[in-house]
């Protein structure tokens, strides 16, 4: 009963936090997809310097813990230009996620049969047009489950933003637990929130996959 009371009374506070978390997750997904597309393009470039840069970027981002990356960006950027914690968190999470999205994109591209590229190039289509019109649309279908999975990871990773004072979902639970001395209750409740959002995302990805399957 106490738990249910807590669940109901914490609702307004946690809802505010949830909004921030969802926005953070959405922006992370958006920017990491753009960053990843750029990194993959650089990685596949014939210009040695570009592909080398992409290789180093991927190695560094994957080799550094998210929280360290976040702190470096937060304290690093703040020392140069004034940005708020939310912006810093968006940048940090996007950079972190972009390395994994880039790998997902690359495996998607590799899954497209080489005959597709040959057919397209044989028609006189450029490398870029072939990528955009032939390879990417086919890769996208393969990649959607992995992309949703990465979005789920980003959602959960976003809790780390509380370390640099972003007032998101996890931070809200932290404050409730500190005020009431009931950590178990509020951390359990906030876990349910995350679980619910993941459930919705999984459901939606199933719908998207089925849509593409129907189109053959």
């Amino acid at each position: 009963m106490e738990f249910l009371d807590a669940l109901v009374t914490s609702w307004p506070t946690l809802l505010k936090g949830l909004r921030v978390t969802l926005l953070l997750t959405f922006l992370t997904l958006f920017f990491s997809v753009i960053l990843a597309a750029i990194i993959v393009a650089l990685k596949m470039s014939k210009v040695r310097a570009f592909s080398a840069f992409a290789t180093v970027y991927l190695a560094v981002v994957r080799g550094v813990p998210l929280i360290a990356l976040l702190f470096v960006i937060y304290f690093g950027i703040v020392s140069i230009v004034k940005v708020d914690a939310f912006t810093a968190a968006t940048i940090g999470l996007s950079v972190h996620s972009s390395a994994y999205v880039a790998e997902i994109f690359r495996s998607g591209i590799n899954s497209v049969h080489s005959g597709q590229v040959e057919a397209s190039r044989s028609l006189g289509m450029s490398r870029a047009a072939t990528m955009i019109r032939v390879v990417a649309p086919q890769a996208l279908r393969v990649v959607i489950p992995a992309l949703v999975n990465q979005a789920i990871i980003s959602l959960k990773d976003s809790a780390v933003a509380s370390f640099i004072t972003v007032d998101e979902l996890f931070m809200s639970a932290q404050r409730l637990s500190a005020a009431t001395f009931q950590p178990l209750t509020y951390y359990a409740i906030v876990s349910l929130y995350y679980l619910a959002v993941v459930g919705v995302m999984t459901y939606l990805s199933g719908r998207v996959e089925r849509y593409f399957k129907k189109r053959g």
């Binding site: 005959g115 040959e118 057919a119 044989s122 028609l123 006189g124 086919q138 279908r141 189109r215 053959g216």
Partner: peptide, 19 residues
């Protein structure tokens, strides 16, 4: 690309764009 515009190729495995 300019040359290939005028040279058609047909493959054993068709290679139609499935999407």
């Amino acid at each position: 690309n300019r040359m290939r515009e005028h040279v058609g190729m047909v493959f054993q495995s068709f290679n139609l764009f499935p999407h």
